[in-house]
Simulated assay, not measured.
Amino acid sequence: MLHLNINDEISPLKVVVLGTAKSCGPTPKPEDAYDPKSLEHILAGTYPNEDDMVDEMEAFASVFEQYNVKVYRPEVLKDCNQIFSRDIAFVIENKLIIANILPDREKEVEAILHVLDKIEEENILHPPEKVHVEGGDVMPWNDYVFVGTYTAEDYAEHITARTNIHAVQYLKEQFPHKNIKSFELRKSVNARENALHLDCCFQPLGKGKAILHKNGFLVEEEYQWLVNFFGRENIFEITADEMYQMFSNVFSISPEVVVSEKNFTRLNNWLREQGFVVEEIPYSEISKQEGLLRCSTLPLIRT
């Protein structure tokens, strides 16, 4: 059995589900795009091809291997994009919460049943239907759980709005001893302004550091709260273009080791200056779908 344990974003990783790019299907039609960045690449004829994305994910898998992390992969479904395993479920403490995801993607959960079978049934939570939540919006951080939301009345009109007010309430009920801290995110049809998930504009790191992008947050006080929480001197503030490239969507294997995209030169240099080991891999093709390293992972156990 798997004894789930996730209390933060950085403790040494032992077990993870890494998505797969195999058989991810043809380039979607514009009307089937889930996010503005994918749409941009579909229209430009630069949507990534499967072989390149498979190579990028294998590079990620080999870094996990190097650090002795046990990696599960989803069963490959024909013509189904299964790269972003973070969207379909997430773990807080010893509970795995199955996300109420965009309906078209429910079969992705079935593809990890071989993993879910190893978890005690009482530790798998199925939120009620009104609770919309995706793992990219949920970050356990010790006594806190940071949650990205969108609560305006036009929520239903935004395909980019993924986590609602009911999700915040649900997490408060399930984890009453945690401080559930929510942040309103900026939603836009313009890929350069859209914060699809919280991890698109914020990422806590080891050594008390964090990556932030001010304009990803709708409410300046909420952004300021994070600045005060981590301390301005500990924050790497990314530009709008760097948010668009997904600079904040790196992944910590431990407090000292960060996996990052090899083209993120400014960030990677800063991380090394702060004393991190940076494992650089190519991931720029996958980033065209508005997701990167954190999005591709579903951590199950950190020690």
Rank of each mutant, 00 (worst) to 15 (best):
L116M: 07
A156N: 08
H166T: 04
N164S: 04
D137Y: 10
V131P: 06
R162K: 14
D117E: 14
F183Q: 00
N142M: 04
E153Q: 12
V145K: 07
P176Y: 11
D117M: 06
A156D: 14
N179G: 01
L185F: 09
D143Y: 13
H114D: 14
L116I: 11
V138R: 01
Y144R: 07
D104C: 10
V109I: 15
Y155A: 13
A152D: 14
L125M: 05
E153R: 06
I165N: 06
V147S: 00
P128R: 03
K118P: 13
V109K: 15
A99W: 07
L113N: 15
E110I: 10
D104E: 15
H126S: 11
N142H: 11
Q169G: 04
L113S: 11
H126V: 06
D143N: 15
I180L: 02
E184I: 04
L116Q: 05
P128E: 09
I101L: 06
E106S: 13
E134K: 11
D137P: 03
D117W: 00
L96M: 14
V145W: 02
I180E: 02
K107I: 14
I101T: 13
K181R: 10
A167P: 07
P127Y: 04
V147C: 00
A152Y: 10
I124W: 10
Q174F: 09
E122Q: 06
A111S: 15
I124T: 08
E108R: 00
N123P: 03
T163L: 04
L125A: 09
E134F: 11
Y150S: 02
R186H: 09
Q174T: 07
K178D: 04
N179Y: 02
V168M: 06
G148V: 12
E157Y: 05
M139G: 01
E129N: 14
V109W: 06
P140G: 12
D137G: 01
G148P: 03
T149E: 13
A156L: 10
K172Y: 02
T151H: 07
V133T: 14
R105P: 01
V145F: 00
K187H: 02
Y144V: 05
E106L: 13
I101H: 07
F175G: 10
I159V: 14
M139V: 14
N123I: 08
K107E: 13
E134R: 11
H158K: 10
